[in-house]
Amino acid sequence: MFEDGQVYSPVTEHRDGTVQVHLADNHPGRDDPDYLARRGQIAAAALTWDRAVGEPVPTIGYTEDEHEVWRTVSAALAEAHARHAHPEYLAAKAALGLPADRVPQLAEVSERLAPLTGWTYIAAPGSVPLREFYGDLRQRTFSSTQYLRHASQPLYTPEPDIIHEVIGHGNGLASERFARITEAAGQALTRMESEEAAKLVADVFWFSMEFGVIYEAGPSGARELKAYGAGILSSFGEMEEFREMEIRDLDLADMGTLNYDITQYQPILFAAQDLGHLEDVVGDFFATADDDACARLRREAEDRGLVPERV
Results as ranks from 00 to 15, higher is better:
Arg51Lys: 11
Ala52Thr: 14
Ala52His: 12
Gly54Phe: 01
Pro56Thr: 05
Val57Thr: 08
Ile60Met: 03
Tyr62Glu: 04
Tyr62His: 02
Thr63Cys: 02
Thr63Pro: 06
Glu64Gly: 11
Asp65Leu: 05
Glu66Gly: 02
Glu66Thr: 01
His67Lys: 03
His67Ile: 12
Val69Phe: 14
Val69Thr: 13
Thr72Glu: 13
Val73Ser: 13
Val73Leu: 15
Ser74Asn: 08
Ala75Thr: 14
Ala78Tyr: 00
Ala80Gln: 13
Ala80Lys: 12
Ala80Phe: 10
His81Gly: 00
Ala82Ile: 10
Ala82Gln: 08
Arg83Phe: 10
Arg83Asn: 09
His84Leu: 07
His84Cys: 11
Ala85Thr: 01
Ala85Asn: 03
His86Val: 06
Pro87Asn: 05
Glu88Cys: 06
Tyr89Leu: 02
Tyr89Gln: 00
Tyr89Thr: 00
Ala92Ser: 14
Ala94Ile: 12
Ala95Glu: 06
Ala95Asp: 10
Leu96Thr: 04
Leu96Ile: 04
Leu96Glu: 02
Ala100Thr: 15
Asp101Cys: 06
Arg102Cys: 09
Arg102Thr: 01
Arg102Gly: 06
Arg102Ile: 08
Val103Pro: 04
Pro104Ala: 15
Gln105Ala: 11
Ala107Tyr: 03
Ala107Phe: 01
Val109Ser: 09
Glu111Leu: 00
Glu111Ala: 03
Glu111Gln: 01
Glu111Lys: 03
Leu113Met: 10
Leu113Val: 08
Ala114Gln: 15
Pro115Met: 15
Gly118Ala: 05
Gly118Pro: 06
Trp119Thr: 04
Thr120Pro: 01
Tyr121Gly: 04
Tyr121Thr: 09
Ala123Cys: 08
Ala124Gly: 07
Ser127Thr: 15
Val128Asp: 08
Pro129Met: 02
Leu130Val: 13
Arg131Ser: 09
Arg131Asp: 13
Tyr134Trp: 12
Arg138Tyr: 02
Gln139Arg: 15
Arg140Asn: 09
Thr141Arg: 12
Thr141Val: 14
Phe142Trp: 13
Ser143Asn: 15
Thr145Lys: 14
Gln146Ser: 11
Tyr147Gln: 04
Arg149Lys: 06
Arg149Leu: 08
Ala151Met: 06
Ser152Asp: 03
Ser152Phe: 09
Ser152Met: 08
Pro154Tyr: 07
Tyr156Asp: 00
Tyr156Leu: 05
Pro158Thr: 15
Pro160Arg: 10
Ile162Pro: 02
Glu165Met: 10
Gly168Tyr: 00
His169Ala: 13
Gly172Asn: 02
Gly172Ser: 05
Leu173Tyr: 05
Ala174Phe: 03
Ala174Asn: 04
Ala174Trp: 01
Ala174Val: 00
Phe178Gln: 06
Ala179Trp: 05
Arg180Lys: 14
